[in-house]
Design a protein around this nucleic acid. Sequence first.
DNA 1: GACTCGCTCTGCAACGATGCAGACATCGTG
DNA 2: CACGATGTCTGCATCGTTGCAGAGCGAGTC
Lengths: 338, 338
Amino acid sequence: MREATLRDVATRAGVSIRTVSNVVNGYAPVSDSLRAKVETALTELDYRPNLIARNLKQGRSGMLCLVVPELDVPYFAELARAVIAAGRKHGYAVMVDQTDADPVRERELLTRNSRLTLFDGLILSPLTLSAQELRERGNKTPVVLLGEHIFDGSFSHVAIDNVAAAREATEHLIGLGRTRIAAVGDQPYRTGETAQLRTAGYRQALERAGLPYDPALVRPTERFHRRLGATAATALMALDSPPDAIFCYNDLLALGALRGLLTAGFRVPDDVAVIGIDGIEEGEFATPSLSTIVPDKQAIATLAVESLVALIEGGAAPAPAEARAAHTLLPRESTVGR
Amino acid sequence: MREATLRDVATRAGVSIRTVSNVVNGYAPVSDSLRAKVETALTELDYRPNLIARNLKQGRSGMLCLVVPELDVPYFAELARAVIAAGRKHGYAVMVDQTDADPVRERELLTRNSRLTLFDGLILSPLTLSAQELRERGNKTPVVLLGEHIFDGSFSHVAIDNVAAAREATEHLIGLGRTRIAAVGDQPYRTGETAQLRTAGYRQALERAGLPYDPALVRPTERFHRRLGATAATALMALDSPPDAIFCYNDLLALGALRGLLTAGFRVPDDVAVIGIDGIEEGEFATPSLSTIVPDKQAIATLAVESLVALIEGGAAPAPAEARAAHTLLPRESTVGR
DNA sequence: GACTCGCTCTGCAACGATGCAGACATCGTG
DNA sequence: CACGATGTCTGCATCGTTGCAGAGCGAGTC
């Protein structure tokens, strides 16, 4: 049985379609007697408005889309929660999609037939897309980007200050008296901008402290996953002169490193201190608990949604806004011990 | 500037709207010369089909919606990944939403204006909704339920055998020689069906092994979060005769318990063994690594999507299907040590 | 009593796409 | 040369809703 339409209700109630629509939406004044008749018919037929039709007519869907590389990376899951909440505050439903960190699927977002046309706006955390590709997309859906990646002034964009965050993480380790500090997570190629910014911050901290920069202590990882963190950390400890601290470019790498180090028999933080970035809840319950830089996810979400809503409702495109969210150092056992 | 429509392209190419549509969709044969003209116009105007309009005409959107209580609960995030993948295999895009474990928001899903009308089907992991509420919803969108909750035969439904899973977890602990086994996560009220099934499995195992059932060892928790696991575990160890093993109803509780126990100075598994359910990746990297029951998330996702697609494309409603996904015991350090 | 006013209510057109039936031109066949 | 068959292309109606303009009607005013 198909869903009842306005026409069905109108026939049953003996009124015009338009009047039913008015009753449903409360747009125009309707006399009590008619209203009652219509409402009876509405419930009898169990009418539900067809939102697709409404959207077509109104040219908007009231939905935003958040696209992240991987939902099961806790940082993105926690961010998604915040974005969904921020969207609701502005009257938008936020639906989440993931690209599986697959460049092909990221590019699908830009194609002609992308499902994104269904949404009023897009919040995208790109992984491999270049600014140029994004600019040339056929898609006119308003976009706000998350993360440092590919920002070139042509899009609204929200991120933390990655250089500062990395510098502060490294300085925290230096402040604890560590002198051979490794970095895990560099991505020295086109799509690794965020990682490169963190490397820059790391080097700034070393420089300011007058510590030498040793390329052997910087380990690239293709992704920011636990297992790669474990591998990198144990490899570092196998060096002739191993590090006494490891700065990981995100918490998953750091948590993997923790586990790898403990398995290999190293004590954290006594032998090696470890710090990450992301402030995911998992780090609080790890053993030892993980020191980290906590980005203000609430702020990121709010800023992203606000920029996007401005783009959508602002009519003429306002200039792309670049917003910075705050971050704070959260020292825990993995650097300062118990 | 608004998006180009078929009409715009048709005007520019000097052909009928219908022909442009044919070129775009490849439906009917079009001569090479016309096709070329149309394609030029298409790219010049950067035409993108309006999916809302297409959906309205075709009566379907090609999108499924997955609704979970909390995306930042890793089990749901990992499940979401699997569901998204399974959906793609069947030609559907899956969008994810969360209710924040808020009963009000769960009920919003059922209201007249629910955005769900935009989707061809719904995969729902309900938390507080009753079967009756779901049955009485105005919404005719096909639904498949995840988890044991509220299944009463009126909906298609996918879950693991929670009783067996809990029994096997408990039996694993018993097999290691533990005799005072606690359970963390009971929810002895209407919306706690899943938890209650796990309690049943726990009691079955005790009974079969001839171990006494001690109500003091069963700790309810309102949610399945790390912090509550930590609290419950430390409370248990403060008992006059503390347990020598703890079965947690999910991995987050277990990971919280691990941390709580270690902070309180207990050795895991020497003093207390700990096991969870969910098989989330986090448990593999915890210290000690977490023993767990791993539900076959791939299977859950596949079964759910297949049932849903059957409902959607099957025309006349097929009988609701009840599907069971497999689970396996994965012993790790938190029960068997290193 | 004619007129305006204001309140209800209605019909038509439109959003942008596709399904369908048929128009038209071209071709092959007897 | 007439005919039907084939291959391209088009116009109209339609999906379910809302915007707009105006019809109809009773009440109020002079």
